[in-house]
């Protein structure tokens, strides 16, 4: 795939989100290189929904995503480790509520 390299350098990276069925949320399923949004959507269809994985696709430029840094993992996430009372496990959830 040597001749693929120039294209991959020129084409920006896109994150792909697929909704597997109506009513569920879009889930991140991967990324790909494409020249623009329409192109990215088309490629996402061919790469990520060929086995009937989805009914809807979002593509987002990877540069539009601001991510937490691995270095700040301690300060970001560890303080939540001993706050068990924040989990809603002390409530009875009625069956009718469904997905929780």
């Amino acid at each position: 795939m040597n001749n693929a390299t120039p294209a991959l350098k020129e084409w920006p990276l896109w994150e792909v989100f697929v909704r597997s069925k109506q009513g569920l949320e879009h889930k991140h399923c991967g990324s790909l290189h494409a020249s623009d949004a329409r192109h990215a959507l088309q490629m996402a269809r061919d790469v990520y929904t060929r086995r009937q994985e989805g009914v809807s696709i979002w593509v987002v430029p990877s540069t539009a995503i601001t991510a937490s840094e691995p270095d700040s993992k301690d300060s970001f996430f560890d303080p939540a480790a001993d706050k068990v009372y924040r989990h809603p496990t002390f409530y009875e959830i009625p069956d009718k509520v469904g997905h929780m």
Partner: peptide
């Protein structure tokens, strides 16, 4: 294929 995504597109 010229790029991975097109390889898959043509296989589809």
């Amino acid at each position: 294929g010229p790029v991975l995504e097109e390889d898959l597109a043509l296989a589809n």
